[in-house]
Amino acid sequence: MDDVLRQGVEIRLTVNGRKHREVVEPRLLLADFLRQRLGLTGTHLGCEQGVCGSCTVVVDGETMRSCLLFAAQMDGSGVETIEGLADDPDRLHPVQQAFWDHHGLQCGFCTPGMVLTAKALLEENPEPSGAEIREALAGNICRCTGYVFIVDSVKAAAETMASNAPRGESP
């Protein structure tokens, strides 16, 4: 039985724009696949129960918990992680830049999930109110900041993204 249980599943997927072909054990969580197989350690495991949001990644355009998905399910999918946003501190995504400018992080552990969730919010709602930002981030626990500067950061990112957006198009 052990052999059957550990029988690998072949998956082809795109992660941060790069194509991968891998054979994975069925029980390997997407988060562990990203971290251990691809070395993308910016995705963090904070609870493995889907509550804390630290492991948030974007799968086929939607934020999801990578602790509640198996890598085996990802065949044909496109995954975006925090590492896909910027490769140089001088070229940060506006959300990352705003978190930096407004002290939106302390220990940094929740930050990748927080940034990806905030980015998804702003792509859908370019001018969120403070309450809408808090609601959108409700599934991401930060133990350090008390969220005040995170909310400030997201507001600032919204302004940057609005001013960066070409006229006549939605950002």
């Binding site: 590492e83 940060l92 992080l105 220990c107 930050t111």
Partner: peptide, 9 residues
């Protein structure tokens, strides 16, 4: 901050 923001901590 950059290493934390970029997932490189």
């Amino acid at each position: 901050d950059p290493r934390f923001l970029m997932g490189k901590a």
